[in-house]
Structures are given as C-alpha cells and as structure tokens.
Simulated assay, not measured.
Amino acid sequence: MAASLSHTVLPRPEFDRPVKVLIVVSPYYSDIANGLLSGAKAELEAAGAAWDVIEMPGALEIPTAIGISDRRSSFDGYVALGCVIRGETTHYETVCNDSSRALQLLGLQGLCIGNGILTVENFEQAAVRADPDGQNKGGGAAAAALHLIALGRKWGSQSKGIGFKPQGQDTLMAGDPDGTTSA
C-alpha cells in the first residue's frame, strides 16, 4: 500500500522577492477540493507566498485557465487542484490523460505548475490524498510549484544566447552601432 511507504520531502524553498501563485481548482467533488485547497494555501502561506484562487468546472478546464492566466496576468506559478474518480466509461482515461498532458506541456513551455489533480479509483482514496493531515497532495502540489519558481529564479537571468548572438552580449539594432538611441 502506497500510504505506508516513506518518501523524501525537500526543504521549503526561500525567496528574496515576493511570490504570487494562482491556485486553479475544480470543486466538482467539493469535499475533496476543499481539502486540497486547504493544504495548498497552508504550504504557500508557510513559504510567505501570496495566492489567488479561481474555480473551473472540471479538470479539463484547469490547464486552459492556467494558459489564459499566464498570458494575461503576472503570476510566478500555478497550482492545479481537482479530482477525477474512475467511473464506468472511458471518460476517466480521457480526463486524466488530457489534463495531465496539457499541464506538462505548459510546464515544458516554462510555466511553474504543481499538479494536484488526483486520479483515483474511488472517493475513499481521494479523501486520504486530499486530507491536509493525511497525504496532503494539495500541499505537495503547492510545494512543487514553489520549487519550480525557485529554480526559474535561480536560472532566469542566465542566457544561452540566441541565434548568432553570443551569450551575455547586448542586442544592437541596425543603424545604431553604439547601442544608444537618437531622439
């Protein structure tokens, strides 16, 4: 049983500048969502991060909401929270796979996302995972987002160069050989 296995929890990252995180939650199973949300908020507050919460109808809408928010706001990271419980149809596989894949693709584009969308066989499994005093998967998703934000800030100012532009060299515009602009 997975609950009896021990695992390593990384130390909480520390930040020298404020951190703002958007929590995107689907309250489809409201008891589960409330547990996940409570754990995520507690983890963010312990790290000194500010947070906002928006709700989406289901797990499939969470990645789209994060993508829209990233294009139109200034959040440092995101926490995706929800729950998908296996039913009698293949809809479970579609929702699990597509929401996870979309979050992963957003992450590969550079977004700092902690994935706390539970994919479980039954309500009891979800309740154990969502409980802030149990497995606290909401807190774990928030911690993952914080670690990604810290990594992005650590390496964010480094440049590998673009095209023929050597690393660390400023870009000069045509007709402006010394880099200054004339008014």
Rank of each mutant, 00 (worst) to 15 (best):
M1V: 03
M1I: 09
M1N: 05
A3L: 10
T8E: 15
V9N: 08
L10G: 08
P13K: 12
E14Y: 12
E14G: 10
F15I: 11
V25A: 15
P27A: 10
Y29Q: 07
S30P: 13
I32L: 02
I32V: 15
I32M: 06
L37A: 03
S38H: 06
S38V: 00
A40K: 03
A40S: 10
K41I: 09
A46C: 06
A46R: 14
A49P: 07
A50E: 15
W51H: 13
W51R: 08
W51P: 00
W51N: 05
D52L: 07
D52P: 07
V53L: 11
V53T: 09
I54P: 00
M56R: 04
M56S: 01
E61H: 05
E61I: 03
I62G: 01
T64P: 04
A65H: 03
A65R: 02
I66Y: 02
G67Q: 11
G67A: 14
G67S: 13
I68R: 06
I68M: 10
S73M: 04
S73R: 06
S74G: 01
S74F: 06
F75E: 03
D76A: 01
Y78D: 04
A80N: 04
A80E: 04
I85C: 04
I85M: 05
R86E: 09
E88Q: 15
T89P: 05
T89Y: 06
T89V: 14
T90S: 15
H91G: 10
H91P: 09
Y92V: 10
E93H: 13
E93I: 14
E93N: 14
V95R: 03
V95F: 10
C96H: 09
N97D: 15
S99V: 04
S99E: 05
A102P: 12
L103V: 12
L105K: 08
L108F: 09
Q109H: 10
C112Y: 05
C112A: 12
G114K: 06
N115T: 14
N115H: 15
G116V: 05
I117L: 07
I117K: 01
I117G: 10
L118A: 01
L118Q: 03
T119M: 00
T119Y: 05
V120N: 01
V120Y: 01
E121T: 09
N122E: 15
F123P: 08
E124S: 08
Q125P: 00
Q125F: 03
A127G: 07
A127I: 04
A127D: 00
V128S: 02
R129S: 00
R129G: 00
A130Y: 00
D131V: 02
D131E: 01
P132M: 02
P132K: 04
P132L: 04
P132F: 00
D133Q: 06
G134V: 00
G134K: 02
Q135A: 10
K137S: 01
G139W: 00
G139Y: 01
G140R: 04
A141T: 13
A141V: 14
L146A: 14
L146R: 03
L148Q: 13
I149R: 06
G152P: 03
G152Y: 04
K154N: 06
G156R: 07
G156E: 13
S159E: 13
K160M: 12
G161I: 02
K165T: 14
P166I: 05
Q167L: 10
D170R: 09
T171E: 12
T171M: 14
L172V: 11
L172A: 11
A174W: 15
G175M: 11
G175R: 09
G175Q: 08
P177R: 09
T181S: 14
A183L: 11
